[in-house]
Amino acid sequence: MTKQFRLKGAFKKLAGFSALALLTCSAVQAANWRYAHEEYAGDVQDVYAYKFKEYIEDNSDHTLKVYRFGELGESDDIMEQTQAGILNFVNQSPGFTGALIPEAQIFFIPYLMPTDMKSVVKFFRESKAINQDFPKLYAEKGLELLTMYPEGEMVVTLDEVATTPKELHNKKIRVMTNPLLSETYTAFGATPTPLPWGEVYGALQTNMIQGHENPIFWIESGKLYEVSPNLIFTGHGWFTTAMMANKDFYDDLSDEDQALVNDAADFAFEEILKHIDGLADRSLEKITSSSDKVTVTRLNEEQIVTFKKRAPQVEEKFIDMTGDSGKALLKQFKQDLKDL
């Protein structure tokens, strides 16, 4: 064998080893990330999750596994798993995060947020409180806040029509495990009753509770109108949710992967705004065409005033619960809304 032939063979082996090394490096860098949310297939959080997944997988070698409501437990369970690093991403509403981050309960101060779509979207895009202040609060709890986004106007369902706080007296209204939301319904004259989501349908069906609140798409998706057919649009707020990552996981990502995650969150945010535009009307149409027992009541301005007058006591409770941090956040919220 000639020296030249031996050298050619050596170069071929070296090239082979180099190619294998590159493939191995690529395999090491590609990851299978895990993401859990609180809703069912086709609901707002699910649509957001799959848009996020779409962007990640279209723009990298990473894959993303999405877990829906119940697959890994309730909302509290998936948050614990994210903080423990078992999950990389989680979508959880402030209604549940409020136990961990009290300031997140600000979204449950009634009549603080606007209810028209255009103003709500502008607020989420431009609010300093949401885009600058909240990320710091989440970071303190080991979470990287990637985005907050609106899902829909809150609607109350009841066993009978009610248009005044007096008519809500002694009505047990299911609330998330959120102290400020309980204060809201106490102020409204009702009896707040915290319950996990999985128990709500049965509790309404057996009259253990007489009502609950949720965006209309969720009432349609969960078929809550079957056991709580009177829908009341009180105009008191929008359901908000937050998508976040385990902070240690996020901080350990390369600059390239951090940019990928941030861009995916932005992409999904824009897509979800398109999705929710008109969603409430479509969901309400499905509900009313599915049941002739459903009634729809939209409070007029005079009726809203009777509820709105009770909002200050909820603000006071929020400040009591959160101290100077909450007071500053509430001030910024109001300034952001004024700037709209």
Rank of each mutant, 00 (worst) to 15 (best):
N246S: 04
S75Y: 13
K128H: 15
I109Y: 10
G85K: 08
F233R: 06
M176D: 13
I304H: 11
V120R: 04
G142H: 06
Q4M: 06
K166W: 14
G202H: 11
K247Y: 12
Q45P: 11
S182W: 11
E39I: 01
G152R: 03
R125K: 15
G95R: 00
N178H: 08
K12S: 15
M176H: 15
R34L: 10
S127E: 04
M113K: 12
V44C: 00
A328T: 00
P102N: 04
Q29Y: 13
H236Q: 12
A265E: 07
N131Y: 09
F333Q: 07
M208H: 12
D320H: 07
K128V: 11
K293V: 09
N262E: 06
E103H: 02
L180W: 12
A268G: 08
T306E: 08
N91Y: 15
F333K: 04
Q258E: 09
A162P: 10
I276Q: 08
L253W: 07
M244C: 01
I232T: 10
K274C: 00
F52K: 08
M176C: 15
P110E: 03
T186P: 03
R125G: 14
S221M: 00
Y55W: 09
V296G: 03
A259Q: 13
A264V: 04
S60A: 09
T184G: 02
Y48Q: 05
L14P: 02
D46I: 01
E226M: 01
L22M: 11
S289V: 01
G323Y: 11
M1T: 12
K274R: 08
M244L: 08
S289D: 03
T147F: 14
N214V: 11
M321C: 00
L7W: 14
S119C: 10
P192M: 09
K128W: 13
I276W: 10
F188Q: 02
G235C: 02
Q4L: 10
I276A: 06
S290P: 02
L181F: 14
L231Y: 15
L253A: 03
T322L: 03
D263Q: 13
F249S: 06
E144A: 15
A187K: 00
P229C: 00
V261Y: 15
K334W: 11
D133A: 14
T240F: 14
K331N: 08
L329Y: 12
V200K: 08
S221V: 07
T82Y: 12
G152T: 01
N91G: 14
A242Q: 10
L20T: 04
R174Y: 15
L145A: 00
Y250K: 06
T2Y: 14
H212E: 13
F307W: 02
F307S: 04
F188S: 06
E39D: 04
V120P: 09
Y185F: 13
Q105A: 11
E144N: 11
G323M: 08
T163F: 08
Y201K: 08
S290F: 13
V261K: 05
E199M: 11
V66Y: 11
F233T: 05
T297Q: 09
G323H: 07
M79Q: 12
Q92H: 14
I276S: 04
L337D: 07
I272C: 09
L158K: 03
G237H: 03
F52P: 00
V155G: 05
